[in-house]
Design a binder for these strands. Structure first.
Lengths: 198, 198
DNA sequence: CCTACCGATCGGTAGG
DNA sequence: CCTACCGATCGGTAGG
């Protein structure tokens, strides 16, 4: 029986509280209380409250990259975007607390750390922009504005983090499939043998 | 020359700060400083900090309703959703600060006030669900899952509040049109005389 | 990991 | 609208 390291327990408890109340409205004593500790005791395991936020934000960013980047590199245009959407939704729903903190609380990081996350986010979004652009070039997607389309897709996918509830009417997979279908239709992935007649 | 009432100045300054730093991380003294006042002086014009948040959230909700509800009532299915999307984006971009606070900071309201906003939001989203459902019934839209489609659309539209910048590469109208086109294609608004051939 | 504490800041009030 | 203040709480530290 391996116990969860204290540091990880702190990050998990903080992730829950940061998501529920927001980073600024969560005190170090709130986190300590969730672990039945005194406020000052946490500083044996962390340098500052912001440090814990930084860890949570990074492990969320790592997770998105780990799940999505291989698909972006390996799969071919038509099904590539579908696979990436599904994987992104999978992270949002399976690591929901971290994902929410990553999306909503990263602005409370220091300027330098914020800049690092902004750069990582842009690189990640570029995976989606490329999937769309490649699909257009190959002729399976309409010639849409790549940047704004990628932004629209990711905004919708990220929004799931704020309303998804495990055990709700739709499973995570059903949500992922619905969103993937919706956006692939938006890109007019052509059906077999569809022609336009005057 | 009519001066802006103090109360409105307070709400405007608070809206800016709540959006930039978040409600919890903005102090009453921060708001006062933006108006060259002392912290305590604000209490001649407001009962509490939460009261100001409540005003901002409500004026944003009012704005969405004022702009979108008439279109939901008047226009016919195919173009109705397009008009509603455009109007929603117009509010997001023209009242961006209030819209951001409405979307991101309403969770800092008291439980009763949060419940009121939740009810208003659901009624508002129902306008979009109805526009989609009516389009399906009339046969201009595919038979998609109405609820999740409306959620996806509104998530994407609301996301604009967090990245739009006046004077950026795309005007508010161009963004509105792009999003409207994207989602109407996703609903497969049929082109004239398109048929599927085996 | 706890007790006890630090200076700073918080939302809000009294009295003018 | 200001000065001066209230008790509470904040992030973080020292010393054990």
């Amino acid at each position: 029986m391996v116990e969860t390291p204290r540091r990880q327990q702190i990050e998990d408890a903080a992730s829950t509280l940061f998501r529920e109340r927001g980073y600024a409205a969560t005190s170090v004593r709130d986190i300590a209380q969730a672990l039945n500790l005194q406020g000052g005791s946490l500083y044996a395991h962390m340098a500052s409250k912001e440090d814990v936020l930084w860890s949570i934000v990074n492990r969320a960013a790592d997770r998105f990259n780990t799940e999505v980047a291989p698909l972006a590199a390996a799969t071919q245009p038509p099904s590539r975007l579908r696979a990436m959407i599904r994987a992104h939704v999978s992270v949002v729903t399976s690591a929901q607390k971290d994902a929410s903190v990553f999306l909503d609380e990263w602005r409370f990081l220091s300027a330098e750390r914020r800049a690092q996350i902004a750069a990582r986010r842009d690189a990640y979004e570029a995976l989606f922009r490329n999937a769309i652009a490649d699909g257009i070039q190959v002729g399976v997607f309409d010639a849409v504005d790549v940047r704004i389309t990628a932004t629209a897709i990711l905004s919708a996918l990220n929004g799931i983090a704020s309303w998804y509830r495990a055990g709700g009417p739709l499973s995570a997979d059903e949500i992922a499939d619905s969103y993937a279908e919706l956006f692939l239709k938006a890109l007019r992935e052509p059906h077999f043998m569809t022609r336009t007649i005057t």
